[in-house]
Amino acid sequence: MAITAAMVKELREMTGAGMMDCKKALTETDGDMDKAVEFLREKGLAKAQKKANRIAAEGIVVDVVAEDGKSAVAVEVNSETDFVAKNEKFRNYVKTVADQALTTEAADIDAFLAEKWHLDESKTVAEELAAQIAVIGENLKIRRFQQVKEENGFVASYIHAGGKIGVLVDVVTDVVNDEVKEMAKNVAMQVAALKPLYTSRDEISADYIAHEKEILLAQIKNDPKESAKPEKVIEGMINGRVNKELKEICLLDQVYVKAEDGKQSVKAYVDSVAKAAGANITIKGFVRFETGEGLEKKNEDFAAEVAKQMNA
């Protein structure tokens, strides 16, 4: 039977399921509307889609590192409440998502969701997500993942506050021992705590530096006292302020949080460990995921929400 747009629209209005899910349901049931509804319910899609407009800004970040340490992935999966984020069933599910993300060849979330679910290839990752939503009773979202691979060293992992922040650090090294691994974990903790934007100054474009200098120059011109200073002094002030900013946003330029003198940079710390180990070590990059970062969080009175549901 030919599936028309009108049929898909009708099923979507009846169930709240997605357009492609409705088309698939009608195709599988040869256009039988009642059976299509049952198909969506069995897959958990109808119930899941009704929750899709709820804000999922809690959740956890999970890191998975391959046994040889040469590859790793960070995955963020969101839930509506912190209560669910702490639930063992939810956490176990996120771990299975991360296990699949470690070896996926998907380039983005949409492609990942369309993959066959590695624990049951009769369904996709998206269908398994919908099933979990139906069981857990909250909107869930696989928000993002990022893989890191390093053949000439290893990938270090650090999870902060039970999954609120997840960090991966790409370490290039010709020596891997306990001291080097401890250094890598300390650097990962630095990333979690001080939230750098770049690994080193080499990653920052000349255009960015020029733009920052333009802003600083404008600020100086708007200050009568500073604008009256000689041009060379103003130039030195601008360069000094740019350098200060770079020391805050570049990992290797940051002051190492565990430095005994409060002055040692992360690069100096890494170099000291490399020297002691007789190794060549480079921090090549990092990934930092913070749960709910950039998402709008729902701020509702819990008692009022319960009362609203009871009176519905």
Rank of each mutant, 00 (worst) to 15 (best):
G262Y: 04
L168M: 13
H118F: 14
Q254T: 11
V169R: 08
T124M: 15
L45T: 03
E248Q: 15
E212P: 03
V135N: 10
E10K: 02
D253T: 07
L119P: 03
L119Q: 12
A56Q: 03
E293W: 13
K43E: 05
L295S: 05
A6F: 00
D207I: 11
A210W: 02
V169W: 07
A161L: 13
I220T: 02
N53A: 13
T29I: 02
K229I: 03
K95P: 04
I238S: 05
L194N: 12
L194H: 12
I60V: 15
E115R: 06
E182H: 12
Y158K: 12
E128G: 03
V180H: 09
V37L: 09
L217Q: 15
A98P: 03
V148L: 11
Q49A: 15
A111I: 05
R201D: 11
V148G: 03
I204G: 06
G292F: 05
H160E: 09
A101H: 06
Q219M: 09
F289V: 04
R91Y: 05
T199R: 08
C250W: 14
E138K: 01
M310W: 07
L26V: 00
A66T: 02
A101D: 07
V73L: 07
L251C: 07
W117K: 08
V64S: 02
K263A: 14
E182L: 14
L26D: 00
A85F: 05
N186P: 04
E121Y: 06
D120C: 10
L11H: 00
I3S: 04
E214G: 14
A134I: 10
G69W: 04
L251A: 07
V171K: 06
V65W: 09
P230E: 04
F289K: 01
E42L: 14
R12W: 00
A111K: 14
Q146P: 09
G262H: 06
K35D: 00
G236R: 13
K24T: 13
E42V: 09
A279H: 06
I249A: 08
E67Q: 14
K23D: 00
E128Y: 11
A101Q: 08
K47F: 12
K141D: 10
G163S: 07
N92Q: 11
I165T: 08
E260F: 02
R143M: 02
A134Q: 12
E105R: 13
D82W: 04
N280C: 10
K263M: 11
L40W: 00
R144W: 11
I249L: 09
L119G: 09
V64P: 01
L102M: 07
A304M: 10
A228E: 08
V135E: 10
T103F: 06
R288T: 09
K275T: 13
E151R: 05
S71P: 04
D32R: 03
R12P: 01
V169D: 06
Y208N: 04
V287A: 10
A259M: 07
D253E: 15
S157H: 05
R144V: 07
E13S: 03
A17H: 00
